[in-house]
Simulated assay, not measured.
Amino acid sequence: MKKVLFIDRDGTLVIEPPVDFQLDSLEKLEFYPGVFQGLSKIINELDYELVMITNQDGLGTDSFPEETFWPAHNKILQAFKNEGIEFSEILIDKNFPEENAPTRKPRTGLLNKYIYGNYDLANSYVIGDRATDIELATNLKSKSIFIGENNEIATLVTTNWNEIYLNLKAEPRKVQITRKTKETDINIELNLDGSGKGIFKTGLGFFDHMLEQISKHGNIDLKVEVKGDLEIDEHHTVEDVALTLGEAFLKALGSKKGIERYGFLLPMDECLAQVGIDFGGRPWLVWEADFKREMVGEMPTEMFMHFFKSFTDTAKCNLNIKAEGENEHHKIEAIFKAFAKAIKMAKTQTDNYSIPSTKGTL
């Protein structure tokens, strides 16, 4: 799911003319200090789509006809394009003076595409210089950045575009995913940039212990809460946790810009587990691990392969898993620890901010 920066134009990208607040001539055009440097770093290094919003008061009225609006507006767009900064969409509200129109900020009529589309609004931002911009963020259930001196609601208040960039760069890759069927009710919270904290309530003690290995050794924060039909068996709980966890990783990784992408091997006593992972967008599982026991704790050993296969399906990753040894508990725990270490490597962010593929997309 895509994250978006909904950026108000006047007072944020350009300085709003102080006398009449109307950018109706090229002579009045002045760019906000630091905006080019800040947005360049954001678009090159981070994973946000840029959307410009303006409801310049008076657009299309006799006092401020459209022909006075477009020269300055087009000059703004060209200046940003010259610096490699392009907006995926330009949203202009022409409903003034209809102040109660559904498209007028802070109402969300202009943004239905993003409300009902495949967008991560919870981790998106509205950036603006007016209270209505921050109210728009509240209505979208997104975060907000207020460019100005004082706002008690905004996530960040600043007048510095470099501070905006640093704030966005420091944002952890966090998601929350729920999955509810007639068989299971699952809630997963994942923070790829965590510190190894975990909470696990699946109803299966050994399964909780294995999920804890992912959190601890993957250096991620992970919370998994499940209400499953364990009175039938363990199958639905294990499978649906894997499917939901894979979806969480897919969402948290976003476009995968700047990650290592690959990860790899772990000995545990007499066992050796090898796990190779590739978050390359193509689900596949190679499984070379046999178990002599039917159960480990409350977990059927046949479910371990099914867990990783289900994870690859929704995470859209390639997993190659091999394990050998005598102790079945050690063997499966080694697999989960190696899996966690592989994830830790693959999710690592690098100083190369491109997509890690010659295709340019993953």
Rank of each mutant, 00 (worst) to 15 (best):
K141I: 05
N160Q: 14
D20W: 05
K341T: 02
V226C: 04
F200I: 08
T244K: 03
Y48H: 00
T358A: 04
E231N: 14
Q22E: 13
N123R: 13
S144I: 05
I53S: 03
N112T: 15
H236N: 14
Q274N: 14
D269P: 03
E270V: 08
D221Q: 04
A315S: 13
M305W: 08
Q37A: 14
F308C: 02
N219S: 08
E66T: 15
T314M: 04
V51S: 10
Q37R: 13
F64P: 14
M295R: 15
N112I: 10
P71K: 12
E333C: 03
L39M: 11
G263V: 06
I90W: 10
T132F: 06
F339R: 01
G148E: 05
M305D: 07
D62V: 11
A342M: 05
R104S: 04
P172H: 05
F206D: 05
D10S: 06
K28T: 10
D93T: 06
N112R: 13
E67G: 07
R282D: 08
M303Q: 07
L362Q: 00
S40I: 00
Y114P: 02
E302C: 09
L319E: 13
V126H: 12
T348A: 13
K180G: 00
T155V: 13
K94V: 12
G203E: 01
Y353M: 03
L5H: 04
K322F: 05
I145H: 11
G117T: 05
D269Q: 10
S255D: 12
M299E: 09
F96D: 09
I199L: 12
D93G: 13
N151R: 12
G258M: 06
F279H: 03
P17Q: 11
K105H: 06
N44V: 00
E98G: 05
F291G: 15
K216R: 13
N167F: 14
A248N: 02
T178V: 00
K94M: 10
M303L: 14
Y48K: 00
N191W: 13
E326Q: 11
F339A: 09
E66L: 12
V286A: 09
L136P: 01
Y353W: 14
N123K: 11
K169Q: 12
I43W: 00
W287P: 11
D351N: 15
P71N: 10
I153S: 07
S124C: 07
N318A: 04
Q37V: 10
N44G: 01
R104T: 08
K257R: 15
M1L: 12
K197L: 11
F304D: 05
A346D: 01
A72E: 09
Q213V: 01
Y353T: 13
H330W: 01
D313N: 15
D62I: 11
N100W: 03
I90E: 14
I199F: 15
L46I: 03
G11V: 07
